[in-house]
Amino acid sequence: MDDRRQHSRHTAELHLEVYDLHTERHLGRVVDLSIEGFMIFGDCPQEADALLECRLVSYPPVEGLTEVRLGADCLWSRPGADGQHCWSGFHIIDLAEDQAVLLEGLLKRL
Rank of each mutant, 00 (worst) to 15 (best):
D20Q: 02
A48C: 01
V31R: 13
A48F: 00
D82I: 01
I40G: 00
V30A: 08
L75G: 07
I35W: 03
H22N: 13
Q84V: 02
Q84R: 14
D20V: 04
A50H: 07
A81L: 12
G37M: 04
Q46R: 05
G83V: 03
A50P: 03
E67N: 13
E53F: 08
S58D: 02
E47A: 06
I35A: 14
E36D: 15
R55S: 14
L70A: 09
G83Q: 09
A50I: 07
F41K: 03
D73Q: 14
L52H: 12
R25E: 14
C86D: 04
L70R: 06
M39T: 13
R29C: 07
S88D: 01
R29P: 00
H26Y: 10
E67L: 09
F38L: 10
M39V: 08
G42F: 00
G37F: 09
D82Y: 00
H26Q: 06
G83K: 03
G28M: 06
P60R: 13
P61C: 06
G71D: 04
D73A: 06
S77C: 10
W87L: 15
E67C: 14
D20R: 07
I40A: 00
A81H: 05
D49C: 09
M39E: 12
Q46W: 02
E36A: 08
D43L: 06
E36T: 08
L51K: 15
R78K: 11
S88V: 01
L65R: 06
P79D: 10
P60A: 12
D73G: 00
R78M: 02
S58K: 03
T23G: 05
F38E: 01
L21Y: 06
G83L: 03
D32S: 02
R25Q: 15
L65M: 12
Y19G: 04
C74F: 05
T66C: 05
V62R: 13
P60T: 13
A48E: 11
L52P: 03
V30P: 04
R69K: 14
L52D: 14
A50G: 08
F41E: 11
T66D: 13
G28I: 04
Q84N: 13
